[in-house]
């Protein structure tokens, strides 16, 4: 399996991205920012296709648009909440714009390039370009390192914001850094599983970890390990079974989530009895 270059690339890049997604995702769930991540996924789709259309690199489009929008959300100080009608309407339009870019791109090229949009939406981990391997691995590791570096104050701020601010934790700066980290992670995860399936790496492992442990450091470590396991297991299965890798990644993640929910309910019932 590892004799094939595309599998090696997938394991390496997917692993680095998973580490970053697991760590950042832990804070995404802890800080209740799931729908910021959702919105950024929509932006990544439009930004990536816009980048290609403008003659830039697709990576430049995805990273640039995600970071720009994350900074904007951070500057507005708002949370992109799912129930909010205004925000929902804005991001539906952003996606609509992505559809326009997609159709402009496919009519400009031959019909065979029509799959570009599908790979942005649903990922293409088995078909990574050399540039994506380098960028994905390096940014993945860098993101994980930055999260670990700011983990202590960020945990403090996430769990007890008022006390943290009183103790001199720089709330605004930290929040902004966190938004940028989420944006970079979303942009990375788009390469692995696609804009529509980023939750499988960014939210599900963290949700499983929080079901299994209430201690923050253990939870963070668990979240990263689970994300890694989800990607690698998905890849191994995809190698032997002719099913799309991104489906298998979401499937493994979801199965783990269901298992952790059941385990938690059972242990709670035992605790009560």
């Amino acid at each position: 399996m590892l004799a094939l270059e595309f599998m090696r690339n997938a394991f390496l890049t997917g692993g680095c991205i998973a580490l970053a997604a697991g760590l950042v995702g832990y804070f995404v769930v802890l800080r209740n920012q799931v729908f910021t991540a959702d919105a950024l996924g929509h932006v990544a789709f439009t930004g990536g296709l816009g980048g290609v259309l403008a003659g830039l690199n697709i990576l430049a489009g995805v990273f640039g648009s995600c970071v720009a929008v994350a900074l904007a959300i951070g500057a507005l100080g708002g949370r992109a909440r799912g129930r909010d009608v205004a925000i929902g309407t804005v991001f539906a339009w952003v996606l609509g714009l992505g559809v326009l870019f997609l159709s402009l791109y496919t009519t400009a090229r031959s019909a065979t390039s029509g799959t570009l949009g599908v790979s942005v939406l649903f990922g293409s981990i088995l078909g990574l370009q050399p540039a994506q391997v380098v960028v994905g691995s390096v940014t993945g590791l860098a993101t994980a390192a930055v999260v670990l570096a700011i983990a202590r104050p960020l945990l403090f701020l996430s769990i007890d914001p008022e006390v943290a601010v009183a103790r001199g934790v720089p709330e605004r700066a930290l929040t902004l850094v966190f938004f940028v980290l989420v944006a970079v992670t979303v942009a990375e995860a788009v390469q692995a599983v696609g804009a529509l399936l980023i939750f499988a790496l960014l939210v599900t492992p963290a949700a499983v970890a929080q079901n299994l442990s209430t201690r923050p450091w253990a939870g963070m470590a668990l979240s990263a390990v689970i994300a890694l396991a989800v990607v690698w297991l998905g890849l191994v299965i995809a190698f032997y079974v002719a099913l799309p890798a991104s489906f298998l990644v979401t499937g493994v993640a979801f199965a783990m989530y269901i298992a952790s929910e059941v385990a938690q309910r059972l242990s709670r019932r035992e605790g009560r009895a």
């Binding site: 209740n32 399936l197 979401t250």
Partner: peptide
Amino acid sequence: AGHRRESAAIGSILAFSLGL
């Protein structure tokens, strides 16, 4: 979407259903 545990659960279900 306001509640933490529920939004995580919903996010997991959505990713799986789109993957499916």
